[in-house]
Write a protein that binds this DNA or RNA. Sequence first.
DNA 1: ATTATTCCTATCGATTTAATAGGAATTACA
DNA 2: TGTAATTCCTATTAAATCGATAGGAATAAT
Lengths: 145, 145
Amino acid sequence: MLSKKTKYGLKALAYIARREDDTPSQVGEIAKSERIPQKFLESILLTLRKAGILGSKKGKHGGYYLRKAPSEILMTEVMRVLEGPIAMVPCVSLNFYEKCDDCPDENLCSVHKLMIQVRDSTLNVFRNTTLEDLSGKVTGSDFIK
Amino acid sequence: MLSKKTKYGLKALAYIARREDDTPSQVGEIAKSERIPQKFLESILLTLRKAGILGSKKGKHGGYYLRKAPSEILMTEVMRVLEGPIAMVPCVSLNFYEKCDDCPDENLCSVHKLMIQVRDSTLNVFRNTTLEDLSGKVTGSDFIK
DNA sequence: ATTATTCCTATCGATTTAATAGGAATTACA
DNA sequence: TGTAATTCCTATTAAATCGATAGGAATAAT
């Protein structure tokens, strides 16, 4: 299950990506528009900033902005920051690998192969989706396709 | 993340599917072989029996057995019983649908489309994997492929 | 100075997870 | 007929996680 944290984070990022002008988006504004508890959103955006996805400006007229173009921000990156491992079990995780305490041998584990398949098919989606796709903004290149 | 319950359940099912003779598999035996806490496994197998995937025989020489051939048991069925929804959010779940309390309109939600893609790619794996595949037993038909 | 904002730490209640406890019901078999 | 072995059932527990809130420090614009 996707945590609320991740869901809210994705919605907030999409909101920021849709912004036309170059002013930073404020927590209160995003919270209201996307129906997210403000204090909760605050902590989520802080996480995204610490991970380098968002930048921030403090004080009056402050807020959050993207550090890269939406088309350069892959879902793999965002999901790993917000949700953690993409794999369903740590023993098939690329970025958060952990050995199982049961399982003497991973290669003999019946669950292992299945979970690798699930991981790869999910990765395939996240690797081919950017924040631009998520934002729903139509750009020129969409028509070329 | 896959729960221990699901992981243990899958391993136990694979164990039962590998059994050659027609005697039922006992909880104690499975628990020992697969390194699963016995009492925990007991409750898991009970769940699988109530869901119709396993049958059971009580008393001495009792145990659990499959109700269908391993090749007839799809991962979709097993996963839904053990883990619940396959989708990452209830609003894209086929069998456990629930509306989001945020989100005035699902079709406008930026997260929705992405989660449908993830669901479909995961479903594709589970629909094409049976307990026979999980068990690792080689059968004649494997060579035909 | 005042106001508006991000930043930080701590806390809280509710839920879920993983596991255990204890015994009732049932069956095989001596 | 009694004993051992097993599934079945309900309840409980400890720990972890989740979703959210509280309160204020730091910073910046005006």
